[in-house]
Design a binder for these strands. Structure first.
Lengths: 152, 152
DNA sequence: ACTTAAGTGTAGCCAAGGCTACATTCCAGA
DNA sequence: TCTGGAATGTAGCCTTGGCTACACTTAAGT
């Protein structure tokens, strides 16, 4: 999935038939969708590296609930994108870029879980739903969440 | 994408290495991801039918920001799944099941936008982010949102 | 009544991300 | 040391959901 051009964001005159705006929104959602995979993997690998000292493809597969060939294929994509490195039969490691991304993703995840909890979502549901929702929260939304939690 | 078995949900003893739980969460997120497309289309078609009186594939394509062959392909899927009907060169219509789904999806969308607004997310971001997040909100979360908005 | 542009449909390509089946490598215990 | 099972890697298939290029209807304007 190649990201669509996401064309120029002309501000829409109020009250106009806002088709382009809607199309942009869907476009943004599609881009986010294609990034979710990369984000989940990087976060998980970072987690494994810090808690277990190593990240092996089977561990990644098991934690994600997919078969190991699926995991390996995606890890290959991470390598292509310069986020991870791995030598055959050795573990997986993150490049600085990968680590950077992992930390950003984790912070975002935690923020969203916190917000969900603070509006009364049960812990289990908050954790589960955040797993999907986190990939769609824009900067503006994250800022608002932080401010809300702060002012509570 | 076929939905994975989503294996048995044994409740996890607290403090244990909660791998299965995490795998289940990712599994749930994957299922949700494959449903997003269907939900978006059904909601949009319903919207076009009520506001324009008809839903044509090019309109759907334009509103979603994709080419019309892409739209047609997905609409074919809706037909396969019994959510929509269409005769060549005529418009697209929703079956009762499709309408039911459309209404549920729209209600959910609105609820999420409302919640985001109520915690201080700017309108534009709320609308855009809801487009992606809505597909991941569980029943428990939606109930919590409703309760939160109610008690405000 | 024709012609033509817009709308609609079809064919075929690509990448992502699942899967199963099979091959290879590693390492621990006999 | 050697050997067998677990871990890892590869090959090949499927579906989804994008795309472009091309074909066919429909309907509108002259």
């Amino acid at each position: 999935m190649k990201e669509p051009p996401l064309s120029d964001s002309l501000t829409q005159p109020a009250g106009m038939p806002a088709e382009p705006t809607q199309a942009q929104r869907f476009g943004r959602a599609r881009s986010a969708r294609s990034a979710t995979q990369v984000e989940d993997y990087v976060e998980l690998i970072d987690d494994l590296l810090t808690t277990q000292g190593e990240a092996r493809s089977t561990d990644v597969a098991r934690r994600l609930g997919v078969t190991h060939p699926s995991a390996i294929k995606t890890i290959a994509r991470l390598k292509r994108e310069g986020l991870a490195t791995a030598k055959p039969y050795r573990g997986i490691f993150l490049t600085p870029a990968g680590q950077e991304l992992a930390h950003r993703v984790r912070a975002r995840h935690r923020l969203i879980v916190e917000l969900l909890l603070s509006v009364g979502v049960p812990r289990e549901a908050a954790e589960a739903d955040a797993e999907g929702m986190e990939h769609y929260a824009s900067e503006a939304t994250l800022e608002a969440f932080a401010a809300f939690l702060d002012g509570k």
